[in-house]
């Protein structure tokens, strides 16, 4: 019984994945490329940066990077608080 359920689940998941692969577009031809084209044509002129990824990360999508940095900061603060040396009177 358990094996049958597992097999049916496996079949369903495989069918979904294969359906997705069958409807995939050819490599390098996304359905909507307006934003990519804008970044590629205008990053050098607007941000004066050759690395377009850095232009997106630190300029166009800077707010997202701020959240990323906040996540790292919270992780560091959490680990430092977890492993900090307890004072003598706190034991």
């Amino acid at each position: 019984m358990r094996k049958a359920i597992l097999f049916v689940t496996f079949l369903f998941v495989s069918a979904f994945l294969l359906l997705g692969v069958a409807e995939m577009r050819p490599f390098g031809q996304p359905a909507v490329a307006d934003m990519d084209d804008y970044f590629i044509t205008n990053a050098q002129g607007e941000v004066a940066v050759n690395n377009v990824v850095t232009a997106v990360v630190f300029d166009y999508r800077g707010f997202d990077t701020l959240g990323e940095a906040t996540v790292l900061f919270a992780a560091v603060v959490g680990i430092l608080a977890l492993f900090r040396k307890p004072k003598e009177d706190e034991r």
């Binding site: 002129g45 941000v47 940066v49 050759n50 850095t54 630190f58």
Partner: peptide, 16 residues
């Protein structure tokens, strides 16, 4: 920075 493929300018990019 000049447009197109180039080696890049180190003293460019503003706040980046």
């Amino acid at each position: 920075v000049p447009a197109g493929a180039n080696a890049g300018v180190l003293n460019a990019g503003g706040t980046v």
